[in-house]
């Protein structure tokens, strides 16, 4: 089974989700990320979903889980690039993704992470 690649960018990890994910793949990503955070001592995780045409409750919860797990492992998570149609649908679905930081794109996401780390623990 293909696994979603995780890139190391300095103190951060970057995940770009490009495929139409099925559930198993999503679970594998959660595992891989948690391991990688510990392995690399990363302080931040960027999840790029600009290619996703849909986010349902399962994927939404996975993202929220990743953020929670990352926080326990002392890393901040930022989700970037959510498409307008996806955002509107998620709001209708009732998923607020509270506690997950968001940004327009990878560049701004990195700025956000750097600010968050500089500011110290929340």
């Amino acid at each position: 089974m293909d696994r979603i690649p995780i890139l190391k960018m300095g103190a951060f990890l970057l995940v770009t989700i490009q495929v139409d994910m099925h559930d198993r793949l999503a679970m594998a990503l959660q595992d891989d990320l948690s391991n990688k955070i510990v392995e690399t001592g990363a302080r931040g995780v960027l999840i790029d979903i600009s290619s996703l045409e849909m986010v349902d409750s399962f994927i939404g919860r996975m993202i929220a889980n990743i953020a929670s797990v990352a926080r326990v492992l002392d890393a901040e998570t930022v989700v970037v690039g959510m498409r307008p149609a996806v955002a509107i649908t998620l709001v209708e679905l009732g998923l607020s993704l509270h506690g997950v930081r968001t940004a327009l794109d990878v560049e701004r996401g990195m700025e956000l992470l750097e600010t968050a780390l500089a500011d110290g623990p929340r």
């Binding site: 959510m82 955002a87 968001t102």
Partner: peptide, 12 residues
Amino acid sequence: LKTVSAARLMGV
């Protein structure tokens, strides 16, 4: 508020 929430999900 839905509009605000949707924007926030996009980092706006």
